[in-house]
Structures are given as structure tokens and as C-alpha cells.
Design a protein around this nucleic acid. Structure first.
Lengths: 324, 324
DNA sequence: ATAATTTATGGAACGCGTTTCAGGTCAAGA
DNA sequence: TCTTGACCTGAAACGCGTTCCATAAATTAT
């Protein structure tokens, strides 16, 4: 295919002039501009973007690191990012990690290699130290409730939100509370678990080990939660659930098993995704999509100011419905 | 940052040799290889990927065109693509279009500009003719039930699946059937609508205009469907619903409004996503994720054989549950 | 022992657009 | 009239890795 030199030759101008036309520089006389455009049209030319990227030293692409796309939380977050990216004319390159560290490192290597201008971590599995090593490679933004001053981060205060949930359940007379978390080994889950144990101690409630349920990520997982519930000797009266999907699963399966919600078992979850509204599940709203747009905007700020490292905590709200 | 020439200089070899080391070519003596690797380590060098892309003339990236990420159908499809892409070490660049044609053209322009090696259309809004113009720009795959021989395409036979749904409802004694579709103007919806009208005519059932409901995309839309249902003078006895999300919304809202499913209103939908299983909704399974992996594999085939244009139709299966 | 390979290595061209610099023209201000 | 600055244009260098070609040494085959 044609290149800029050929266009220049055929249009009878220099490559610089062609480049100027391509980039809408002023300082090109109308007749030369027209000649160039005509030649471009005739040859059906379009610039090689890799060459552009190489010489400009940037690509207007940013990498998005997330464990899985196929989960409402992440796809909503991603949508928030994508909408904002579109406004800035920036392309997204996906790094679906499945929580594997190598995949995250891959994204960082691509950053070092200038394939992407920066990285947004929708979730992170690699240690923070590793991140620091790439600090100079380009702007990075974290979507986590972290206590560091090296990178901008966006999140909600998970522990506070979790406590709000616990307190609300307690205020409704529940003491025997079980919790459903995602990956128990995750930092967030650890923090939540700790908050839970403290709160339970505070109200003088002994915690049963079987009340802490892990691997609750998707709607299907709600089913096994109910099954486990039915087997428990000491039954909790309420579930605090990490996300709406699982809560919806628990809700539906409970009803199917003849349990009344909230009478036999109360359910309180997080996110306020559409499913919770339609099912009338009491939930703590997390502005997931906003999280995404804020993350992207932080990325933009960080791009032009490499010392920008604001930590933004978005608000969460309890939404009372009928499941508690 | 350092480049390959500097590495060469410091390691006392030529750039070709450095390049060979980088690309694991044989024909490099162990001592030179070691010298190069040492220098690379010392300078913390990593190759500029844009330069690699430019000189190789390919990028190992493919563009994915989809209207929205935040919908189970598309995020599952995307996951199928992403998993397969990972195996082939290919990066995905997202083009979220919101059904806007310009965005699709943007993807095609990036293809022409060699930013991506190809494009997978998870959905398409631009006319087919436009697509043809880019045929030579690189491999493209369509996820649609189309009757063309220019590109590989993956889909299920939507009309047949729709007919299966209608026939099943009829076999269960329903004649007064309403349908819920997505964007009525879409090709798929048009085809389904036609199939519906024919089938109704065949069983001698007059079609009420208000039985054809559009804009049914997400779970929330189920609510308005029920509201509209309640207002209808001529009430249908069954709904054939374009996707599980909407069906779940209809189901839940119906129950909330005191309607019995399937006694007062039967529900049959498409997809067999987890939500339908947990809620016991009868559905026609669409192997969404497989659709994605097949699409990617077709892309790979098309990449090495530009005449490959197989049309693959994946099977669909009726899954009987309790909503009909 | 001689011809034919295989193995090693470097030089230079290539892919292609951007940008800097230098040189020139022309009109407005002093 | 002279200066200054805006406007226009092209040559050449730059960003950087890949790859083809040529050369030479070391093996292997005959």
C-alpha cells in the first residue's frame, strides 16, 4: 500500500507537507492541500498507525486489567471506563487475567514497551512492590481501597460499607449474621472478614466458622449458600452478601426451598445492580459505573501530572427494600 | 530509554545479533547471547513494541466491535473470544459502539491503518456494502446469521430458534402469544417478527399490535412489559422473550403483581444464562461463550486463508423448566 | 580431500510518519 | 525604507526493531 512518500511524490510536494495536511496543521497553501487530499483520495491512502505511534512515542491506548469481563461488577466498571475513554478518543486494550499474576505483568510489560500509554487496574493480584517497579513506565490507576501515595486510586471504603451493612442488620435485630465473600484470600475479603469478626465480638456474638462463606461470585453460587445454610446446626438469621448476583441467587433458592425472606433469613447485599431492584433486595449501592469513569479521569490527570496520586472514595448508600 | 543499537554497542555485537537474541533465533553463540542478555538486564531494556509492529507489519491485536459490554450476552461472548485470544497470544482492542455506525467505521479504519490485524463484529450496524469495501484490509468475522459468502460468520439460526419457541408454546396450548424483542429495527428482530406473524397466521390467531414489544434488552425492561401487559385489553397467555434477563424481569414483576407463572402468563426466553436456571425459566439455550470462541477461531483461519468464509451455525436447545 | 552445508555475525536497507531546522516570501508595523 | 513576524515549504534526521544479503568459519557429506 501507498505511503506518505509516494503521496508526496505524486502530489508534487514534500513529505512534510503531506504530514501537515494529515495533521491539519495550518501553514499549508490551499492548492497544495487540495493536491495532497486529491492524491490521498485517489490512492485510497491511510496512514500506518504503527508508524504514527512509533514516531509520536504514544499510542492513545490504555490497558485495562481485570479478572473477568463476564461479571456485572466488572462489565459495568468497564463500561464506565469505556464511555469516558471514548470522549477522550482513547482506545482500550483488554487484559483479562483470571486473577493470574503473569497476565498483569504482561500488561505492565506492554506499558514498558510503549504499546499502551498507561494501565488501569480494575483489580490487582500482583504485589504492590512489583507495581512500584513500573512506576516510571507510565501512568497507572488503581481501583482499590488502598493506603498508598504512589498512584491515584478510586474505590469506595469497603470496610466502612461492610460495617454499615452489619450495623443495619444489627439494628433490625439480627445478631446471628453470616457473610458471603468472593475470594477469601483477596485483600478486600480479608479486611471485610476482620471487620465482621470485630463487630460480632462487639455485640457479644460468637462467630461460627461456617458462617463465613467464600467463593461467592455469581448468581449460581447462591444455590450452594442456601444448601449450606440448610445443613448448618447453628443457623444465622441474616446474610450479608458481597454482591447482588449472589444475593439474588440466595433469594431465589431460599424461596424455592420454602424459606421466607426476610422472616426465615434476611438478605443484605452490595452493588444495587438492576437485579436487586427488580427482586426487592435491600442493598448497599456502589456506584460501579462512576468508579469506572472516575478511574479513567484520574488516568487522564495522572498522564499530564506524574505526581498526581489522589485517592478518591466514592460514597455508598443503603437502599432499603424488602429482603431485610 | 535504551534501544537496540545501544544494547548492541555496549554488548559489542551488531543489532542483528541483539535482534536474534530477542527473538530466540538459533545461530547466536552462547557467549554473545549471554553478553547481550547481560546488557539487556543491566539497562533494564525492553523493546519498543510499536517499532516491532511497524517492521513486522502486524500487531497481534484484533478489534472487537460490540454495542455494549455491560450485557450478559455480550460479556459472555466477549469472554469466549478473550479466552481463545489468550491461547493465541493475541490482544483485544475494544470498540464499544453503542450501535453507532461511526464507531464501527473507526474500527475498520484502524484495520486499514494496521493498528489491528483484524476485526470481529459481535454486532453490526453498518451496511454490508461498507464492509465489503474493507474486505482487503484484513480478516473480518461476523457474529450474525447472514447469507453472504464474503466473510466467515458464526451464529445460531435465529429464525429457527424463534420458531422452535413458538411451536413449543403452541404445543403447550398457547395461541395468544406476545413477543419481546430488542431493537425492533435490527435485522434479527425483523426476521423474528416475520417468523412470528407467519406462525400466528398459520394457527389462525389474529396478531394484536400491542403483543409485539420492543426495547426489551435488560432485566429492568421486564417491569414495563408487565405493566403494559396489565393494560392490554386482549391479554396474551404467553410471552416469547428475546433474552433471559428480560424474562427474569417479567417473571419477578409478574409474581410481585400477583400473577402466577405459568398459569396466568407463561414465559419462554433465550440464552440459558445462569439467571434463568436459578429462576426456573424455560429457555432456549444459546451457546454464547462458544459463539465467541468459534468466532475467534474463524478469525484465525481467515487470517491464514483469505478465502475462508465458512458459515457456522451452532445448535440451540430447548431447556424445559417451570415457566411454561 | 573436496564439495556442500550448517552455523555465526555484521552491514545496510526497510517499514513509515513526525518533527526540527533552515531558507524563503510577503505583508504589516516602525 | 527597514524591521519584524507570520506564513509556507522541503531536506534530513529521528523513533526503533526486523530482515535480507554477504561473508566467513566450522561441520558434514561424498
Amino acid at each position: 500500500m501507498a505511503n506518505i512518500r509516494e503521496i508526496a511524490r505524486l502530489a508534487g510536494v514534500s513529505v512534510s507537507t503531506v504530514s501537515r495536511v494529515l495533521n491539519h496543521h495550518p501553514y499549508v497553501s490551499p492548492d497544495k492541500r487540495e493536491a495532497v487530499l486529491k492524491t490521498i483520495r485517489e490512492l485510497d491512502y491511510s496512514p500506518n498507525i504503527n508508524a504514527v505511534h512509533l514516531s509520536r512515542g504514544k499510542t492513545n491506548m490504555v490497558g485495562i486489567v481485570l479478572p473477568t469481563i463476564n461479571h456485572p461488577y466488572f462489565s459495568e466498571l468497564l463500561e464506565g471506563i469505556a464511555e469516558e475513554a471514548m470522549k477522550h478518543n482513547i482506545q482500550l486494550v483488554l487484559f483479562q487475567t483470571g486473577y493470574h499474576q503473569e497476565k498483569e505483568f504482561e500488561a505492565l510489560e506492554q506499558l514498558r514497551g510503549h504499546l499502551i500509554d498507561g494501565v488501569i487496574f480494575a483489580s490487582r493480584a500482583i504485589p504492590f512492590d512489583s507495581l512500584l517497579k513500573y512506576k516510571s513506565a507510565g501512568p497507572m490507576v488503581l481501583c482499590e481501597d488502598s493506603d498508598q501515595d504512589d498512584f491515584p486510586s478510586i474505590s469506595i471504603k469497603h470496610v466502612a460499607a461492610f460495617n454499615l451493612g452489619l450495623e443495619y442488620l444489627i439494628s433490625k435485630g439480627h445478631k446471628r449474621i453470616a457473610i458471603c465473600l468472593g475470594r477469601l484470600e483477596g485483600t478486600n475479603s480479608q479486611k471485610r472478614q476482620k471487620a465482621y469478626e470485630e463487630k460480632m465480638k462487639m455485640i457479644g456474638q460468637k462467630v461460627q466458622e461456617e458462617w463465613i462463606l467464600g467463593k461467592c461470585l455469581m448468581i449460581q453460587d447462591g444455590k450452594s449458600v442456601v444448601n449450606r445454610f440448610l445443613q448448618m446446626k447453628e443457623k444465622p438469621t441474616a446474610f450479608l452478601v458481597g454482591n447482588d448476583q449472589v444475593a439474588a441467587g440466595i433469594f431465589t433458592e431460599s424461596v424455592k426451598q420454602g424459606l421466607a425472606v426476610p422472616e426465615d433469613v434476611a438478605i443484605l447485599s452490595f452493588d444495587n445492580h438492576p437485579i436487586s431492584e427488580i427482586m426487592g433486595i435491600t442493598t448497599i449501592e456502589i456506584p460501579t459505573k462512576q468508579l469506572g469513569s472516575y478511574a479513567f479521569n484520574s488516568f487522564i490527570k495522572r498522564s499530564s501530572d506524574s505526581t498526581y496520586a489522589e485517592k478518591i472514595a466514592l460514597p455508598f448508600t443503603l437502599i432499603q427494600r424488602q429482603s431485610v
